[in-house]
Write a protein that binds this DNA or RNA. Structure first.
Length: 525
RNA sequence: GAGGUGGUAGCUCAAUGGUAGAGCAUUGCCCUUUUAAGGCAAGGGUUCUGGGUUCGAGUCCCAGCCGCCUCACCA
């Protein structure tokens, strides 16, 4: 019998003893007068003398996270709602049954207390317990009280334990919730309607990615988990819902990394009668506002950097390539060279020569790529990692933007921008292509890319083209990666730290602890 | 997908190829203001799995499983 099982049995035996004392082993509720946080805040300023005079009565509850018995007395710390508070128990303040209960308590148990507030000799605000209530038993031992749960794999697999014992984890997810709340508020105030569009789609679109495939039995239908909600949201614009947004999951069947989880949360929003210039301005306001509301400041510490969301630098994709071109790969391309839109193969060759010398990954060229695809690849290779401060990159090649509207004066380019921070892409927005003929040609172009072996090229969506044929007003739309923004605002290095249950390979029998044979013993891990 | 790195008690971590340890947690006893409470005592190990080298493997080699990091793909 391993220790977990031994403790499980011991604690079940204690539950039996509690029942023998007349306590319910799993009572249904407990009415508290204060949360622990309220007690800490409301009475922080009270002196020992004031508390003694007032004898403030409180009822509070929580999980026991520290337990120090002293024979006929004892101290414990309760944790509830992210706040800790000490309680003090002494035999002569309780009846015999309650003191027996106290003796049966373990680290991790949930209890309620009634008592009055006082300050200990060391000045700590503490509840002097006059009545003790048993609420729930922890049958398995909590991780170590001082170091908490360090094993990253177990933290992700057993997030409930991570949250229960690691201070700070809770804060990350509070931050995440506030972030979403703040964005909703900003959009609602701007007259937006929150909507929900299909997660399961028979034609997937709106992004370049491989999908997850599933099957509906009754309809005998192959379905895809959506890679983006874009094409549905724009159908709503056609229908006259002129400002819509959705905050929800996208699913992409691609690699996992510190910046990628197969399911991730995206805010997408579309507004009629606007273009990408409007959205660049709005994005700047939105990010500053969210940073302020969530962290209290527009300057946010992220690792070794302080990211300033008060003002976004704006740089064209073309200029970014010139600016961040590696010095050792001289000569840097001229503005004219990147504008001309014919020199890309040369530039890629020049970059790859340097990359080989520098031991960096070259840009993969399959052959037959359009110039715009190469140029975008150059941008990502050369510039992305350097975009630490929040930056808007604008004007993208049409070849990588099948749903965006052409720039009036430069048909090979589209009105599109992306926002980068800490070297990663945060957002992507553009003036929406609303010419159905042009949209059809773009889809056809994507189909050709697909035939050339691009598994991530868009599918033809006839119904979407038909929707555009009914007329879509000029519209601008944008997607913002909520997980990544949350990383920045919570100073988290990995996307897994801001997703409660990130995708991990499931544990199989034989791994870890052998998959626990189906015995009648404790359900460990 | 490639490379690197890690997996030892419930948890956090030690351990030149030579008897597998500490702190916390657990169990028993003592203790009426402690706070990583303290004191005394005790129990607790398939060193991720499977092979191999060796007189002897937690340690070296091979394979596998799982995680993490970097790169590639991607957002």
């Amino acid at each position: 019998m391993n220790l977990d099982e031994e403790i499980y049995q011991q604690r079940q035996e204690k539950l039996r003893q509690l029942e023998a004392l007349g306590y319910q082993s799993y009572p249904h509720s407990f009415a508290f007068s204060h949360t622990l946080e309220q007690i800490q805040q409301q009475f922080a300023a009270r002196t020992a003398e004031q508390l003694e005079a007032e004898r403030l009565a409180v009822r509070a509850a929580g999980r026991i996270v520290a337990l120090r018995g002293h024979g006929k007395t004892g101290f414990a710390h309760l944790l509830q709602g992210g706040a800790r508070l000490q309680i003090y128990v002494r035999q002569d303040a309780l009846d015999e049954r309650q003191f027996s209960l106290w003796k049966l308590l373990d680290l991790g148990d949930f209890i309620g207390v009634r008592g009055y507030l006082f300050r200990t000799r060391t000045g700590e605000l503490t509840i002097h317990v006059e009545e003790l209530f048993f609420l729930a038993k922890d049958l398995l031992p909590l991780p170590e009280k001082w170091h908490g749960l360090q094993d990253v794999e177990r933290r992700y697999r057993m997030r409930y334990l991570d949250l229960a014992v690691n201070a700070g984890v809770r804060d990350v997810f509070v931050t995440r919730s506030r972030l979403v709340q703040s964005m909703r508020q900003a959009l609602n105030q701007r007259g937006y309607l929150e909507v929900e569009t299909p997660m399961m789609q028979s034609i997937y679109g709106g992004a370049a990615a491989r999908p997850f495939i599933t099957h509906h039995h009754a309809l005998d239908l192959q379905l895809y988990l959506r890679i983006a909600p874009e094409l549905y949201l724009k159908r709503l614009i056609v229908g006259g819902l002129e400002r819509v947004y959705e905050i929800n999951r996208n699913f992409r069947n691609e690699g996992i990394s510190t910046h990628h989880n197969p399911e991730f949360t995206m805010l997408e929003f579309y507004e009629a009668y606007s273009d990408y210039r409007v959205l660049m301005d709005f994005s700047e306001e939105l990010l500053a506002r969210v940073a302020r509301e969530v962290t209290g400041s527009e300057q946010v510490t992220y690792g070794e950097h302080v990211l300033d969301f008060s003002k976004l630098r704006r740089l064209s994709l073309r200029d970014a390539i010139c600016e961040f071109w590696p010095a050792e790969a001289a000569p840097a391309p001229s503005g004219e060279e990147v504008r001309r839109h014919a020199a890309e193969p040369d530039l890629v060759a020049r970059y790859n020569q340097w990359a080989e010398r520098a031991g960096r990954a070259p840009i993969a060229v399959r052959g037959g790529e359009e110039e715009g695809v190469l140029l975008t690849a150059l941008f990502e290779a050369v510039a992305e990692q350097h975009l630490i401060q929040p930056t808007i990159i604008y004007d993208f090649p049409v070849a990588v933007s099948p749903l965006a509207k052409n720039k009036g004066d430069e048909p090979a380019w589209v009105e599109r921008f992306e926002i980068y921070a800490a070297g990663m892409e945060l957002a992507n927005g553009y003036s929406e292509l609303n010419d159905p003929e042009e949209q059809r040609r773009r889809f056809e172009q994507q189909l050709r890319a697909r035939e050339r072996g691009d598994a991530e090229a868009h599918q033809m969506d006839e119904d979407y083209v038909r929707a555009l044929s009914y007329g879509m007003p000029p519209t601008a739309g944008e997607g913002i990666g909520i997980d990544r923004l949350c990383m920045l605002l919570s100073n988290s290095a990995s996307i897994r730290d801001v997703i409660l249950f990130p995708l991990l390979r499931p544990q199989t029998a034989g791994s870890e602890d052998g998959g626990s044979e189906e015995s009648n013993s404790a359900p460990i891990r």
